[in-house]
Every structure is written in structure tokens, then in C-alpha cells.
């Protein structure tokens, strides 16, 4: 589903954010991406969502070489990837409904069909009763779940999450993780970047560990970094 082949990303000034990273995430697999801040987690996710391009090496999604995707095709690639952001990235002056509907509106949905899908997505994250609210009236956890609903509303085969539990207390974090597990169980591939080690330890999924831009561990549990 998602494959990195010897991917290096260096920025002008010589800073190497990712150094020859290779891994393969299977279809329907769920994995964590971890490491200190600055280890290259965000850069790795940016390469998948085509916010950045690798300096050398190749990224494949479902066998498609992303280096062959041109600028005009980038939006269409992003429609196939559900992205969840640490700071939610919601439109604050639009209702929860409008926020979740945004990817559908962009793809040309309208009317009953759109409403049905938005309600289904909000139902999955347990926020159906907040459909008319504005995001700033919601709690942090609820905002995060709106972000998740928006990411899954057009049923993407691949889900990326950047620190989805970053600012949440353990109980809320667990709720959010349960939501991800539920999507994974229906066949969605999920990659979650997180430095919440206790959470990773509890979840026991494959964990990719980055340190200074290098992949130092790829295994069932977090063990490599020097904590």
C-alpha cells in the first residue's frame, strides 16, 4: 500500500530530515511512526501527502510512483489519503457539518447523498449531535474527532494521522485510537505519527522508529530510542 525506497529529504542549508528511509506498509495494516520531535516524522508524512518532495529515493502508494505525479494531479492524490492534523486544521467560522462535508463538496457531491455521508462519518466518531455547532464551541478531543470525520468522509484507503492525541488526556486518547482501530478493521491502512510512548506500548502495533532522520527500528514494539 505504502512503500518508501531509500528516501532522503534534505533541506537547503544541508539539514537532512530523512536519511535513506525504507519501509513498506501493507494494505489494511495499521502502524505507528515514532521518534523525538525533529526526528523526521512530519517530513515523512509530508512526503506521502505531497506537501514536500523527496530529494532522492521514491515513495509508492498502491504501486504508483509519487515522483510521477505532477503539480496539477496533487489534489487528486490527496483525495485518496485521509489526513488528520495535530492542530485539527478546521475552518473555524464554518459549522461541523460544513467542515466534514468539505472534501465531498470539493469532489462535487451535493444534496442528500452528501448529507448521508457526512452524518455517517460523524456518527462513527460519536459527534452526530454536534453537527450544527461551530468548532470553537467544541472541546479539543471533539475538534480532533471532527478532523477524523473529515478525513474519512470520502472513505480513503489510506489514513495518515500526525500526533492525533497530542493535546489530549489518556482517556480521550484511547477513544481516538479506538476510532482508528475501527477504521483499520474495515480494511483501511493507517499510519499514525505519535510520540505518546505509553499509548504505543498499550496498543502493540507495528512501530516504525525514526531518530535523526534514520529508521532505527521497525518492529512490533517501541524499543530502539534511548529514553
Amino acid at each position: 500500500m505504502l512503500r518508501f525506497e531509500q528516501v532522503t529529504k534534505s533541506y537547503s542549508g544541508g539539514f537532512v530530515a530523512l536519511d535513506r528511509v525504507s519501509f513498506h506498509l501493507e494494505k489494511g495494516e495499521m502502524a505507528f511512526l515514532t521518534g523525538h520531535s525533529g526526528a523526521g516524522k512530519s517530513t515523512l508524512l509530508k512526503l506521502i501527502s505531497l506537501i514536500e518532495r523527496p530529494t532522492t529515493g521514491k515513495v509508492f502508494i498502491n504501486g504508483v510512483d509519487l515522483s510521477r505525479v505532477n503539480r496539477g494531479q496533487v489534489p487528486y492524490v490527496r483525495r485518496d489519503i485521509g489526513m488528520i492534523f495535530q492542530n485539527h486544521k478546521l475552518l473555524m467560522n464554518h459549522s461541523v457539518f460544513d467542515n466534514v462535508a468539505l472534501p465531498l463538496v470539493i469532489e462535487g457531491f451535493s444534496g442528500k447523498d452528501m448529507t448521508k455521508r457526512v452524518h455517517a462519518a460523524l456518527d462513527k466518531v460519536g459527534l452526530l449531535d454536534k453537527v450544527r455547532c461551530l468548532p470553537h464551541t467544541l472541546s479539543g478531543g471533539e475538534q480532533q474527532r471532527v478532523g477524523i470525520a473529515r478525513a474519512v468522509v470520502n472513505r480513503p484507503p489510506l489514513l495518515l494521522a500526525d500526533e492525533p492525541t497530542g493535546n489530549l488526556d489518556p482517556d480521550l486518547s484511547k477513544d481516538i485510537m479506538n476510532v482508528f482501530e475501527a477504521f483499520n478493521q474495515v480494511g483501511v491502512s493507517v499510519l499514525i505519527a505519535s510520540h505518546d510512548l505509553s499509548l504505543l506500548a498499550r496498543m502493540r502495533y507495528r512501530t516504525l522508529t525514526l531518530k535523526n532522520g534514520r529508521m532505527i527500528n521497525d518492529g512490533l514494539t517501541y524499543s530502539g530510542a534511548d529514553e
Partner: peptide, 11 residues
């Protein structure tokens, strides 16, 4: 945000 969820420039 719109670009992140896949909106084209023309949209």
C-alpha cells in the same frame, strides 16, 4: 485547509 483535503486551484 482546502488544498490539504484535495481542492484544485481552479476550485
Amino acid at each position: 485547509v482546502m488544498k490539504l483535503v484535495g481542492a484544485t486551484n481552479s476550485y
